[in-house]
Amino acid sequence: MTATISTQTTAVPEAGTFPILVEHEARYADLDASRRIGRDALVRWFEDARVAVEHDAFGADLQTRMQSQVGILLAAIKVDVLAPLTVAGRYRIGVGVSHIGTTSFSYSYAVFSGDDVVATAESTSVLTEDGRPAPLPDDVRTALDGIRIDAPAPTRPERGDARRVRENYPFRWDVRTRFSDIDTNRHVNNVALASWYLDGLAELHTDVLGYPAGGPLDGLSPSSLSVQYLAQVQYPGIYQLRVAVEEIGEDTVRYVCGLFDGRELIGLAEAEGFHHAPGEDGDPVRLAEALAPFRFKA
């Protein structure tokens, strides 16, 4: 039996909800094969907005002091695409702090095209010292509290024992890190890692479709991507990305992806999108049956 999987879990916000609105111009390099703004580009947009907000909210002196004593690492991000984004559009990114914990804090985001919300996101960052979570200083808490928003704290994908077993994910794609993937922290950047999961899904779709020229159908790209960064990914290195189908609904499919260093789970993602899309002749190509053998094994 199949059921429709819901892709929208939170209410759509309005621009006035956010204490900060950042103007953001789309670039040609942000486009993917569908001629729309790519999911990985949106992850970059939210990173740019987050860095700009922290520079202004914390102040240059506080930010420099924090960076010299501790690190700010992204622990998780979830992106939902609600409508197509084009390079010709003019966008604003709403940003607000949704949760302040002991060692971490979370943001809520929305991308506005005019008054329309075309994408939303949420993320969690952790303060670390000597590689371990560190308590948020009082002045950081004060700065974060000044841009609070009334929004639920982010939820993270489940990390049960079954998801830590590499062989439970039927589809395998090996990834070699590139020098261009690393950031100022000398590990693979969160945006590059998000793109790995998208590439892994594209590899699965391409395999199912028989490796067509130009890659898989545009309509198969996920509309929702949620990533947990469980450990730093280093350069140089070769990692295994594993993909499984968690649930197949009437129109949509939910995936779970695990990134492994040997047998250790160092990253986890969930994604959701359609399992059918228009083919070159205009007739729909349906992949539900072809995806069934890739179900999660546990």
Rank of each mutant, 00 (worst) to 15 (best):
L136Y: 03
N189P: 07
R92E: 11
L265C: 02
Y211I: 01
F18S: 02
P154R: 10
D199G: 06
A57V: 10
E264D: 09
A88M: 11
R186V: 13
I266F: 00
A292F: 13
I72K: 12
R166L: 12
D207E: 14
A292C: 09
A3Y: 06
R242L: 09
D80E: 13
V126P: 03
A110R: 15
H187E: 04
A244Q: 10
E47K: 10
W173R: 12
E270C: 00
D115P: 00
D251K: 12
G16H: 06
S224V: 15
W45E: 05
R159H: 15
F296D: 06
F46M: 06
Y28Q: 03
R295L: 11
V191F: 10
A41F: 01
R132S: 10
V43C: 01
G114D: 03
I100P: 00
V118L: 06
V111T: 11
S98L: 03
Y107C: 13
D115Q: 07
T155V: 08
V175T: 08
A244H: 12
V227L: 11
I147W: 12
Y169W: 10
R141G: 10
I147C: 10
E270G: 02
T10D: 05
E25V: 14
L220V: 07
V79Y: 14
P13C: 04
H24D: 04
D138Y: 11
A192Q: 08
M1P: 03
S123I: 06
P222R: 06
A134N: 10
V79M: 12
I238T: 15
R163L: 14
R90W: 05
G94Y: 07
G273N: 03
A29L: 13
H187D: 02
V253D: 00
V117G: 01
Y109V: 15
P137A: 08
